[in-house]
Write a protein that binds this DNA or RNA. Structure first.
Lengths: 210, 210
DNA sequence: GTCTATATCCGGATAGAC
DNA sequence: GTCTATCCGGATATAGAC
């Protein structure tokens, strides 16, 4: 057949048939972002990982800023989808616990940190449009946390001292910082943070937290 | 005099007489580190700020790794000195509050983040010896926090739920994450974290926290 | 859509004059 | 101890063939 007549170049094409390169780039970049940070990963890292050339990435994302912005927008969309989904399934404590679980995966998967941690740390060293998206992401997470805490307090499934907005930032900050500390001091540190958070929300933390 | 006979070159030298260039480099680098992160600052940034040439920095710190390691070692030394000093002056709550205060300065000075936040975020993208120093720094801070919490509990000046080690990581993580969140969402976020922490240590937080 | 080849720039680093 | 000049490698980005 025609395919057999054509050598390596076509084989490579065939390999990429049906594969969504753009999506794979985003996946690889997301992984790199949460491992190395924005300024410490390059198009080369992605190219090697996907076995494509540098220029192929530039076709999908002309500049690195485009890629960075797309990443944060994807985080935001994913968070929206996730909150919609979880709202149907669980009460406030269940939701919060499910949220914690995403961080557990970051910590255990292997020492990833969360988007907020990366963007916050490098905030002064990322393009303006990424900063804009980062602000939106943080606001959306914050608002969801506040709502969830207030709901939990009303339901009686969560108990905590003080203003729910203050508690929300504290929780968000502790999770974010906890992942970073875990990298340096070992993953058990992150579990200690989780246990303390659970304890202060009046849950034993022994049931669902590993 | 002899000085007047010699032109610009000597004037520059004269300007630097009595100035500790090595120390100034460290100061500038520390500032850049907490603003932009390790991988996003260059010798050029420092050179411009101090009005010296690139090569002058390499004289004091042959490689960027040397500079990075020196920075973390200085953080460690400073922390040791600080804890010695504060131990003579205050009870457990006073010590902890003084520790909080250093973070308040980071947040207010202008949107700096803490050493642990930088090193944790970029952990996979910094030289091995820096990682080593970072681990030591984090351990030292952690141990001091645990001691302080236990002392406070014994004294009755601090009250909190659960294991003092867990509480120590939670506090450290919340401070670290809080600074990063404050960059993206505004400085009031950091104060909310502080108030919540104080509240959960059974202090009004209204007295000494701005 | 992906490749090869190349342009451009920047950061870390060294040599040698002063 | 600091300078000027320069090297080298790596990173972003573009041009044009396939």
């Amino acid at each position: 057949m025609l395919d057999l007549l054509k050598p390596t170049v076509v084989r490579k094409r065939a390999l990429r048939q049906g594969r969504d390169t753009r999506e794979e780039i985003l996946n690889a970049a997301e992984d790199l972002l949460q491992r190395r940070g924005y300024n410490a990963f390059s198009y080369q890292h992605i190219a090697v990982q996907l076995d494509i050339r540098n220029a192929a990435i530039h076709y999908h994302f002309p500049s690195k800023e485009d890629l960075g912005v797309a990443l944060v927008q994807r985080y935001r969309q994913r968070f929206r989808d996730w909150t919609d989904e979880i709202a149907a399934k669980a009460n406030a404590w269940g939701r919060l616990n499910a949220y914690f679980q995403t961080y557990v995966e970051y910590a255990e998967a292997q020492c990833k940190i969360c988007p907020g941690g990366v963007l916050g740390s490098e905030f002064e060293a990322i393009p303006e449009e990424m900063r804009h998206e980062a602000r939106l992401l943080m606001r959306e997470i914050f608002e969801w946390l506040v709502e969830t805490l207030e709901l939990g307090r009303a339901q009686g499934s969560l108990t905590f001292l003080g203003d729910s907005r203050h508690k929300a930032v504290e929780i968000g900050a502790a999770l974010q910082g906890g992942l970073q500390i875990a990298r340096m001091a070992g993953p058990e540190r992150f579990h200690q943070v989780l246990q303390q958070l659970a304890l202060e929300l009046c849950h034993s933390g022994a049931d669902s937290l590993p």
